[in-house]
Amino acid sequence: MSGKEAVVTDRRSPLKIARGLGSSHSGAHHWWVQRVTAAALVGLGIWFVVLVLSLHGADFETARARVAQPWNALLMVAFLVAMFWHAALGLQVVIEDYVHTRWKEVVALVAVYFLAFLGAFAAVLAVLRIALTP
């Protein structure tokens, strides 16, 4: 029995350990989704601004009918999902950068994701009510 064998605790090959995931244990997934949602929001954000400007001076019935149109409702849901996802990812980085007490960091991260999900669900449900009720 050699001393060398006794310290082997990980039988994965070095390649298996290195491939895919970095020190954050999630690879570049966060970085990539932040960019994909950003690219989506370039188009959807401009669309949203144009929609809001087109509702300028419109009364309630007109505004509701405009948002209820199939394409507008679809794009609004896409905009909301991309927006809240992008916002949560961005706030996560800010918290990780500035909150150095571990338990406060974890609490803040969980709170941000809870609020982002709540906001996204509330807004999407509102769009569904607008689009599906006559």
């Binding site: 309630f60 505004a63 509701r64 948002v67 609004m76 909301l80 927006m83 906001g119 509330a122 807004a123 449900l125 509102a126 769009v127 009510r129 607008i130």
Partner: peptide
């Protein structure tokens, strides 16, 4: 504000 506006519109 976006969420609030949509909730009010609904």
């Amino acid at each position: 504000i976006v969420v609030c506006g949509l909730l009010k519109l609904a």
